[in-house]
Design a protein around this nucleic acid. Structure first.
Lengths: 212, 212
DNA sequence: GTATCATTAGTACGATCGTTCGTTTAAAGG
DNA sequence: CCTTTAAACGAACGATCGTACTAATGATAC
């Protein structure tokens, strides 16, 4: 996706790699040019030259986090069968990504959303847009499952995804703030329950991730 | 709860009233001494004298937000019958508080949690403690409902509250970031569904808040 | 009315913020 | 090789951060 045309582009990737780690834990405002320069071993001005402003740096960090998110969760799900199987795979990937150590601060986008939802501007717009895309992806897969007869066609995909997404975010909250490691089990139970109720029982081979 | 002994205590309340409004929208770090002084019309040092440090200011802001939370949600629920009725009242109050304009930035504690969950210290500890108390309150009321035979005694209160709390937080997220005003309807539907499944049907007079 | 004492203002500190400038380093192109 | 161009640096900018110290203020108690 990103062209590595010149030598500078390589170091830019290295910068962003560290930047996304800091930002996930301390926030996109807490990510400071001076701090980032120290962490990368560069000079403030040398680093700053790669981005025209702090806002551009923040946007670049967001896109870097998106790359990781897509690589870790969305891409692997493309291999699986469409419908409820892929939906399960996406949700399972989401939980594993939050539970694991992909980002120090849990879900990058949940943190960024909370930080910027009250600050209008390009950064907030980008976060909102990407979050919307993620929800839309889950909804589209729900509709696929409905067309395949795996999920009750009478259900509202928006409502179902609202609930599934809520469980994922809640587990992130509980884990980050309360150190509640059982939150992921709770989320898996809730998701499995939710999908079982929504299911028509038409799924032939339940070879996806096993919950409960 | 807070004694208004001297004249200074009154201005301190006025300061915190404005501070909690700023912090809810811009965060507890975004709440700056200089900014707060300008907003209150005081001098930086005059304002600073009321708190010994920025951290103490942040803690005072949290306690002020707690007062509002308790007054708005917890206190009114004390009038209602215990068990599922009070549980419904608490959840309904929660949603109304997030939906309304109590805090500019939606749920104060959700925002504060996301901001400080990666920064160890007294502020994080206080937020985590209060959030834990809120969850415990919901769980305790669930257990009451179980003792009264309103909710299936075989259910895990922790699991039930996890799901209910998830819906509330998700609606806050959707509303703040995506301007999705239908998120509250979604949350009410999900909560009503959740409680109906958990219910034994033993509740006599459903005169609480009506969902769906 | 005067002494007392909490409250506010004024000023300044060192640190760090994001940003700009001119210069030096170093790789690329001919 | 030399020239061109991109990349990194060092220093400095004005602004603001949290905080400390001292002086003016103003209400309360005697």
């Amino acid at each position: 996706m990103v062209k590595i045309s010149h030598r500078g582009a390589q170091t830019k990737l290295e910068i962003l790699d560290i930047a996304v780690d800091i930002a996930s834990a301390e926030g996109l405002e807490g990510l400071t040019i001076g701090r980032l320069a120290k962490e990368t071993g560069m000079s403030k001005s040398g680093l700053f030259g790669h981005f025209g402003s702090k806002e551009d740096l923040q946007l670049a960090v967001i896109d870097t986090a998106l790359d990781i998110f897509v690589t870790r969760i969305v891409e692997p799900a493309r291999d699986t069968e469409r419908g409820i199987t892929r939906l399960r795979k996406l949700l399972d990937g989401w939980l594993a990504y939050v539970e694991g150590t992909v980002f120090r601060g849990g879900c990058f986008f949940a943190a960024a959303a909370a930080e910027f939802d009250g600050r209008p501007g390009p950064v907030r717009d980008r976060i909102a847009h990407l979050s919307g895309q993620w929800v839309s992806l889950l909804e589209e897969e729900t509709r696929q499952a409905q067309r395949r007869g795996e999920i009750d066609a009478g259900l509202d995909p928006g409502q179902l995804v609202f609930e599934l997404h809520a469980f994922a975010q809640e587990s992130n909250w509980a884990h980050q703030l309360m150190d509640a490691s059982d939150a992921f089990d709770r989320a898996r139970i809730a998701m499995a329950d939710c999908l079982r109720r929504a299911s028509t029982g038409a799924q032939t081979t339940p070879e996806g991730p096993q919950w409960i």
